[in-house]
Simulated assay, not measured.
Amino acid sequence: MNNAASILILVFLAITFIQSGYDKLFHWKENLDFMKEHFAETRLKKLVRLALLHLLVLELISGVLCVVGAIELFVSNGRTFGLYGAVFSCISLLMMLFGQRMAKDYDGARTIVLYFIPAVMAVYWLN
């Protein structure tokens, strides 16, 4: 198991983004209402619906690519899908970080950094 750490991080990212995407998809109204309130005092207030939709799509792409990447890495030592999954995960997290900073939610932004560290590690290891 030369790739155990990379596989574990890909599984971590897959769980994170598939669960988050699932929550946004099946609890759209609650998420949208929360985000509208969260960004009410920012320049993003009119873009919340579109931003949430973009984030949903990116999270689902990230999660699926991480699942496929973990399987590919386990079965054939291939790194392509895992790398793409890690990169899309980083992009998703950067979008969230930008939003949290715009909303001046510094505790939320700090939390995103905890997810960003393993995502960047995956990019580095799989590159």
Rank of each mutant, 00 (worst) to 15 (best):
D23A: 14
K36S: 07
R49E: 14
A86R: 00
G99D: 05
C66R: 02
M1H: 11
M121A: 15
V48E: 07
C90M: 12
E30N: 11
T16Y: 09
A70D: 02
A86Y: 02
V11H: 07
V113S: 03
M96A: 15
E37N: 15
A5M: 11
I112N: 09
A109W: 00
V48W: 13
K46V: 10
L25S: 14
V57P: 02
M1W: 09
M96E: 11
L44F: 13
L73Y: 00
M121R: 07
I117H: 07
D33G: 01
L8E: 09
L58C: 05
Y84P: 03
R79N: 09
G63C: 05
L65Y: 00
F17P: 06
T16L: 14
Y22W: 15
F74S: 14
L83G: 06
D105F: 03
L58W: 10
L73H: 01
L83Y: 11
Q100W: 09
T80N: 07
F34R: 09
K36Q: 15
L32P: 04
H54P: 00
K36F: 06
G69N: 01
I117F: 08
A14F: 04
I91S: 03
K104S: 06
E72R: 12
I71P: 00
Y84M: 13
A70E: 03
E41F: 00
F26C: 00
V11C: 12
L65A: 11
V57M: 14
D33L: 13
T42S: 04
R110F: 06
Y84I: 07
L65R: 03
Y22T: 07
L50W: 05
V75E: 11
V68C: 02
V57W: 11
Y115W: 10
V64D: 00
L32H: 08
T80W: 02
V75T: 10
F74N: 11
Y22M: 06
G108M: 00
H54W: 12
I91K: 04
K36G: 01
A122F: 05
V87P: 02
K24T: 08
F116D: 04
N127V: 13
G99Q: 01
A51H: 06
W28G: 01
D23S: 13
I7A: 05
V113T: 09
A4P: 02
R43C: 03
A51D: 07
F12M: 13
L32G: 07
E30C: 01
L97K: 05
R43S: 13
M35S: 12
L55I: 12
F17C: 08
A51K: 08
H54D: 10
